[in-house]
């Protein structure tokens, strides 16, 4: 593998290499452009934007739009800023990610190491859950949440996201554990470890990469979700995405684009952060299982 790469690297001429880098640079710039626009406009006074020149660097640098978006912008009826909604999102995302990941791991463990009659059919059905469009379940879900007394609460949202995420997390862990040697489980059985001890002491310590995949995937999806948040959240459980929408859509007064930009970046920051911290493992975890060893 490394020999082959070296070989092609040597043969590729300097001209074509420059060309490749040029094209790559162009693509990189193209992809970075929106971020650039967002960042520069979030640190300008409003008149610099409305006067045209979206692409210009700020003449008068200011962090006021950020402060305003965070703590005093008009959202809906109250001038609270995005802060309370940010915490709403955190309170929803953390338990939802944790619960769906743990359940996915348990499902994967059972589906691969404690096979039972009909387990492949069950897994197939769970996979099917990954492909059900959100819109279809909105009304039945609203009814269910109402019946359970969870309508309009953070825990209601947690439940919705756990149910929706479990298909994906199960898929990840099942495929990961499928190549995990069954002999290890058998050895542990002979050693006297029980169902949860085997899971806890043998499987989980080796599940780092796939757990990271599951966490990033779930975190990104749940944090970015708008539809469920808009449909099922109550006034004091609305997540960040819904609040951001309300901020941008609010019709009173002038449109403060700089504040909107700052708010949008604030809403995107956590997912960005998670990816930067754990991104390396994400790629590694996705590759695991495809290559043996």
């Amino acid at each position: 593998m490394s020999v082959a790469t070296q070989d092609t690297a040597i043969r590729t001429g300097r001209v074509s290499r420059t060309l490749i880098y040029l094209v790559l640079l162009l693509f990189a710039l193209f992809y970075m452009l929106p971020l650039y626009v967002m960042v520069v406009n979030s640190v300008k006074p409003l008149d610099e934007i409305t006067g045209g020149g979206m692409m210009n660097l700020p003449q008068a640098f200011t962090l006021d739009p950020w402060a305003k978006a965070w703590s005093s912008a008009q959202i809906g009826v109250d001038p609270t800023g995005l802060k309370p909604y940010f915490w709403n999102s955190i309170k929803m995302v953390v338990p939802a990610v944790a619960i769906s990941t743990v359940l996915g791991a348990l499902n994967g463990y059972v589906l691969t190491k404690w096979r039972f009659r009909g387990d492949t059919i069950l897994f197939g059905l769970m996979l099917f859950a990954c492909f059900i469009p959100f819109q279809i379940v909105l009304i039945p879900m609203a009814r269910m949440l109402g019946l359970m007394g969870l309508a309009g609460t953070t825990w209601g949202l947690v439940l919705v996201h756990v149910v929706y995420g479990i298909g994906f997390t199960t898929l990840y862990f099942r495929n990961y554990y499928a190549v995990f040697p069954t002999e290890l489980v058998r050895a542990a059985q002979i050693d006297g470890a029980g169902f949860f001890q085997i899971f806890w002491r043998i499987l989980l310590p080796s599940s780092g990469p796939i757990a990271v995949v599951s966490i990033i995937w779930q975190f990104t999806n749940i944090w970015n979700d708008f539809l469920f948040g808009a449909s099922f959240a109550g006034a004091d459980s609305q997540p960040m995405t819904v609040a951001l929408n309300n901020l941008v859509q609010s019709s009173t007064g002038v449109k403060e684009y700089n504040v909107h930009f700052a708010g949008a970046i604030l809403a995107a920051l956590p997912t960005l952060l998670v990816y930067i911290v754990a991104g390396r493992y994400f790629v590694r975890g996705l590759m695991a299982g495809s290559v043996k060893g």
Binding site: P181, E183, L184, R186, A187, Q189, I190, D191, A193, S206
Partner: peptide, 20 residues
Amino acid sequence: VHPSKRNIAMVFQSYALYPN
């Protein structure tokens, strides 16, 4: 009878050592 209650020990082909 459960494997752990038979007072047996087993050595596997792949050794099955706990990697962690």
